[in-house]
Amino acid sequence: MQITIKIFRYNPEKDKKPRYESYKLEAVETDRVLDLLEKVKGYQDGTLSFRRSCAHGICGSDAMRINGFNRLACKTLVRDTGAKITVEPILGLKVIKDLIVDMEPFFENFRSVIPYFVNDEPEPAQERLQSPEQRERFDDTTKCILCACCTTSCPSFWANEQYLGPAAIVNAHRFIFDSRDRAAAERLKILNDIFGIHRCHTIFNCTLACPREIQVTKAIGEVKKAIVTGSLE
C-alpha cells in the first residue's frame, strides 16, 4: 500500500519557522512508523532527524506524536495508523531539530524526586528480604522506560514545565512503596510542593499514552493519598 507520511520539520540553522513535509512511500500493514522514518531518511531525505535506539519499545527514545497522539514509533504499526500519517515532536519541550526535543527539563524533574534506592541501615548478611506482596505493591511502576509519552501528554505539564509530571511521580511511586526503601517521607515532601503532585487534575492522558500500559493516574492517586493521609498502606 502507498503511505503518505507528513513530518514536522525544523532546522534551526536554516528555518525561521517549522514546516511540514510530506513523503510518499510503499509500505505493508506490519511496518512500523519507525520503519517508515528510516525509509524516508535512508532513501528520500537524509536531513531528517529523529531519535531511535533499540527499536523494540525498551529504550523509549522514539516517543513522538503520531496522528496527534503520543506513541513510540517502534511500537506503532501502519495498520493502526492508516495510509495518512502525521508525525510531530512530543509537546511541551523545546524542539532541537525536526522530531528531536530537548529532554533535559524532563530528566531534571525525574532526578528531583530521588529516583533511586535509599537505605542507610547496616547491610544484612544476605539480601534485603521482601515478600511477594510487598514486591507486588510497586510492580507496575517498575516498568517505566522514561520515554516521556505520559509527561508530554499532560495539559498541566504543557501549562508549566516546572510541574514534575507523571513520569517523575511514577518513578517516585516505585521507591515510595518499596518496603526496603527509607526515603519515602523525603520524596512525599518533594511531591507536596506547589509544582508537585497537586497539579495533576486526573485527566488520564498519561495513562492512555503510556506504551508500557502503566496505570499512571492510579500511581499518582496512590501517592496523593499517601501525602494526604500520611500512610503508605
Binding site: P12, N67, P89, V95, S153, I203, F204, L208
Partner: peptide, 25 residues
C-alpha cells in the same frame, strides 16, 4: 537553540486524547 516550548492552546487542543481529554476540555 531551537524553538521555544512547542505548545500552545491550539497545539494542546489538537492532541488526540479521546474521551478523557474531551471531559477535561
Amino acid at each position: 537553540m531551537g524553538l521555544k516550548r512547542n505548545v500552545g492552546l491550539i497545539e494542546g487542543l489538537r492532541y488526540q486524547g479521546k474521551g478523557p481529554m474531551l471531559t477535561y476540555i
